[in-house]
Design a protein around this nucleic acid. Structure first.
Lengths: 231, 231, 231, 231
DNA sequence: GATGAATGAGTTTTCATTCAT
DNA sequence: AATGAATGAAAACTCATTCAT
């Protein structure tokens, strides 16, 4: 599955070549802008970065939410692809599969505008589906790993998703290279913490379904769209 | 050291009681708003939450940067306090000190608007000082822990700061309780990863001084202050 | 008559020494600010320049108009003093008196915030009185000069007032010394134009009373007080 | 040369017809407003008078300075046109050319938002160019006049510019007709003062280049743009 | 399908003015 | 009498969104 073939399923006639290019550029620009400035990033700034007119952006994405949704879905798709790949290798090398999964995402985190967890910043039902599939694939990997006694038994798919969400966010004021080193070290330590000979007990993990519930209706906050963000 | 006694050093007599109260309320409101909406949060929204007039906010903080800076410095101060406390217990129980340090910050992360790492979103030289002191205190804790063979030898103060920065950010769309559980689990696994019998090699850690260098001049970005954020 | 003994006639108890000093400083600051920034100059800027608190300014001058009025009246008083001095010398040396009158005002134009003509930016009846007295004194000077055949017969007191108004305004972006030279040269040529052997006929002069009529009620314009200005 | 073909040189294709009309209306409104209220005139008032939305004004002129600059440049262009016309007639009737130059500008002074002298209220290098060309053209007129012994030998182009600057400013509180009469009388007397049989010596004239120097760098005043004005 | 242009609705920022100390 | 502080109202400026070309 490739990220972002135009809309979703009910695909329309198919875009003219230049239109498709514009759409892709807008999404790329949005990805970057959202990571740098938050999802409240000015739309005309995104259009500018994409090298298209603001009205062109609007033609493709009727409103900010549509754009956010697509960017988030694209991010989820990337994660799902990685999770499925991991699931395939899991039989033979579950720990390696798991490590590759996380480290690859970290390495390509510029593509991700999440959090996977914390709910997408969208109501799209597709987001929910994607999350479920991601969790399922990761559960497969973990099952295999547990059988091989390659990981502690108490770790869950949700933990992996949490980790992805936490470590893939931008560290805005740090040069790329340093950010890479620091995040990779953190993940390295985390991965060592996954070994079976645990020393401590973790608090109870919320079941995936439990927090997945927060995805859908997402009480129509009036919050002007100044991005929910963090630091 | 208490967070945010008015400005800093070179300041006037002392605020009138009511003014000091207003100032504190503004800072508290800003902290929350920044975590929820990003540092681009509307200032009048912050004033509203603080129960003061927008002009009162401006009287205390001449522009958005001044407000952000103070909030960030307050966050750093909280971390420094925690680090110093940890340094004191480190002699007798280095690992416990270290765990308490991280877990306490996680538990009180509502106070933190960072990133500690990547530099504050400010040029304030005081931020640099605070970071140095934090790193120094944590290095003390780690020294003791290494002597006790309580932690892997390759972990550095910078790693601890990175961890704090990564895990203390908000997970906006998740209910507090779930977020707490997930983050605590992540930290728990990370702490297990700190044990001495390591299984993997970490990439080289940037020296603290190295990334600290990015704090001060902070290339005078013209970027209007639409927050660097993420999702 | 000295410019600006506190209010006007009904003078109160007399100001405390420090209060009187503050008042004078405010007026001086206002004079400068009005010349530099127009009569719309921020009042707190004026207070700042005067080295007093904004509330102190308000205690002396209940509103912007009160301040403007006093500044203008002070200017008129300076002109009246000069005109009376000229009237006294007029018997013996009418032309010299006239020249001295204009050149002295030009040299001290920092004191003047006019226009004498065009009406003051105030409704104060005292302004009208002052203008009348100025015109009367100048008429005396001109009478004497005409008798001596020292000036062309068609020049009037109003012309002299016009000249004062035109040449005493600030040339904001020019260094003082250059402005002085240029304005003095202009006035020099104008004075030469006053000689009796005229070469051209001037359009009819409005009688003094005619334009003086525009002074008093000055239909209460709502024009927010963004200064009437020029360039 | 026509005043204000869109921006300047390095600009885009050409404005759409309606956009060009809006732009012209904004400039006209700004001209009037600046003369009436000073260059600190509220921009929304200008937009209102121009019959366009404030954002439309901002679309054309990114900030107040841009608008002021264009208005000033337009004024300079008008003066330059007049000076060149005068230069053409100068051979045959230098004095007439000179008189016409000044009187025409006075008659059309509503178009002018200067001062020509004292530097424009702008840093634009084009302003400097225009001033140079104006001075050059006027010098031509004066040369011819001097050869004909039609003017005193000590008058310079700078004097003429000074005069224009002084007499073309608004006399805000005076009805148009009276202002016209008074200013014209003043100019008439000044013109008589230009005759060759001088009676007095003028102070040294600053060379044109000398004060022109004040135009460009224009010490980057931070002075928020509350207009330099006067009264 | 794409763009220049216009606009209404914010948001930020400044300022006059009043109040309590 | 003077000042620090607070506030409401205005003005500057930005942005999302729609329209006409």
């Amino acid at each position: 599955m490739t990220a972002s073939t135009p809309p979703g399923k009910t695909t329309r006639p198919r875009l003219r070549a230049d239109a498709a290019r514009n759409r892709a550029q807008v999404l790329a620009a949005a990805r970057t802008a959202f990571r740098e400035l938050g999802t409240a990033a000015p739309l005309d700034e995104i259009a500018r970065r994409a090298g298209v007119n603001i009205a062109t952006l609007y033609r493709r994405f009727p409103d900010r939410d549509a754009l956010i949704t697509q960017v988030v879905l694209d991010g989820f798709t990337v994660v799902l692809d990685a999770a499925r790949t991991a699931a395939q290798t899991a039989r033979t090398d579950p720990l390696g599969a798991l490590e590759t999964f996380i480290l690859d995402l970290v390495a390509n985190r510029e593509m991700l505008v999440l959090p996977l967890i914390g709910g997408p910043v969208t109501n799209a039902p597709q987001a929910r589906d994607l999350q479920r599939q991601i969790a399922a694939a990761l559960e497969e990997v973990l099952s295999a790993a547990r059988e091989h006694h390659a990981v502690r038994p108490d770790v869950t798919a949700v933990d992996l998703i949490t980790t992805t969400a936490l470590v893939c966010r931008p560290l805005p004021h740090l040069p790329q290279q340093q950010a890479d080193a620091l995040v990779t070290r953190h993940v390295g330590i985390f991965l060592d913490g996954l070994r079976p000979n645990t020393t401590r007990q973790l608090p109870t993990a919320p079941a995936h379904e439990e927090f997945a519930a927060h995805l859908t209706p997402d009480p129509p906050t009036d919050t002007p769209h100044t991005t929910p963000t963090n630091h």
